[in-house]
Amino acid sequence: MALVEVRSVSKSFQRDTQKITVFEGVDLDVAEGEFLALMGPSGSGKSTMLNLLAGLDQPTSGTICVGGDEITQMSPKRLTAWRARHIGFVFQFYNLLPVLTAFENVELPLLLTRLSKAERREHVATALEVVGLTDRGSHYPRQLSGGQEQRVGIARAIVSDPTMILADEPTGDLDAKSADEILNLLQRLNTEFKKTIIMVTHDAKASERAQAVMHLEKGVFVR
């Protein structure tokens, strides 16, 4: 049984009087521990699919199950709690809070848990160690390079040990060297820590790091 099961999912938007269909009747299976790259041209709906998998958006029709939970049936309140527990999100533009240090940014998801302050510290220290930023915990985002910011973003995504990591163009804003480091890190999270990762990218080089690549073309996923 796949960790992620997407069945007959359609997504369309209403813009004024015009109905815009992003994709229709899409099926997708992602196995536990898989590192999947979703590729496709701009506007193909890759990020929309990622948002649906994260429970940030709702499909027009169809069902999405993650780890046996049908998230398309959940109330917004339940979905928020589910997301906090199961999803680690890595953004293209890092989206760190500028007023918080790297340590505090990584700690954000843990504030929603019942962990004590000491336990939170321990988890954050571990996450920063995994991404190689142990000595940058007290730095603010403006004091970090783009690559370092993204590594903090990844530490934030893994700190609560989520079921899967969703990465939306994680190397899209980075130079080649930094992008390589980030991809190495994601690969390591997948192989060493057995994390399920779904990464949206339109960089063919980046997709080579994944175990599987799917192309979203004309509303259909092609392996």
């Binding site: 994260a54 940030l56 917004p76 309140k77 928020t80 709690a81 997301r83 906090a84 527990r85 999803i87 999100f89 953004f91 989206n95 809070l97 500028p98 954000l108 998801p109 929603l112 934030r156």
Partner: peptide, 12 residues
């Protein structure tokens, strides 16, 4: 930033 918090699972 508020959207990021919500994406991380912070309730409304």
């Amino acid at each position: 930033e508020l959207a990021v918090l919500k994406a991380l699972g912070y309730p409304n």
